[in-house]
Amino acid sequence: MILIYPYREDGFYAGQPVELFPDAETGKYNIPPYATDKPPEKNGSGMWRPWYDREKQEWIEKADQKYKDSLKGPADPPSAVDQLKAQSAATMVQLAEAQNLIESQAKMIADLLMMLAEGGEA
């Protein structure tokens, strides 16, 4: 018994190996069309989207990064600590903006008071 690896007409792996037994009369294995005895691996590692090249008789990886990313599940929601860090950062930005506004208003008030002290002329 050997394992064979079926692929569809378009060359992509069909998904599960199949057991193949030798012919009772000849003792030889008759691998059907659209199957190979080579596992869908590259350098001993599995593949994301194996495609069989019949001419070269080898599996080729057809998954691009977009395809790989599409198989990943949604990202874990941020933890409570991460949420508090984000809120803290947003609060610090708001505080800095408020401080800048206070400083610019203080300068405007000082300029207006100076104008008034000099007799109201600009």
Rank of each mutant, 00 (worst) to 15 (best):
I2A: 12
Y5S: 00
Y7W: 06
Y7I: 10
E9W: 02
D10G: 01
G15V: 04
P17W: 06
V18S: 08
F21L: 14
P22Q: 05
G27C: 09
N30D: 10
N30Y: 07
N30A: 13
P32K: 11
P33M: 09
A35C: 12
A35G: 05
T36C: 11
T36K: 05
T36Y: 04
T36E: 07
N43Q: 10
G44N: 09
G44E: 07
S45Q: 13
M47T: 06
W48P: 03
W51T: 00
Y52P: 00
Y52E: 10
D53I: 00
K56V: 00
E58Y: 03
K62D: 11
D64K: 07
Q65N: 11
Y67I: 02
K68G: 01
S70N: 05
K72D: 04
K72A: 11
K72S: 06
G73A: 12
A75V: 06
A75D: 08
D76G: 06
V81F: 03
Q87T: 01
Q87S: 06
Q87L: 13
S88E: 10
M92Y: 02
L95R: 12
A96W: 02
A96V: 05
Q99A: 14
Q99W: 08
Q99E: 14
N100A: 14
L101P: 00
I102C: 02
M108A: 15
M108K: 11
A110K: 13
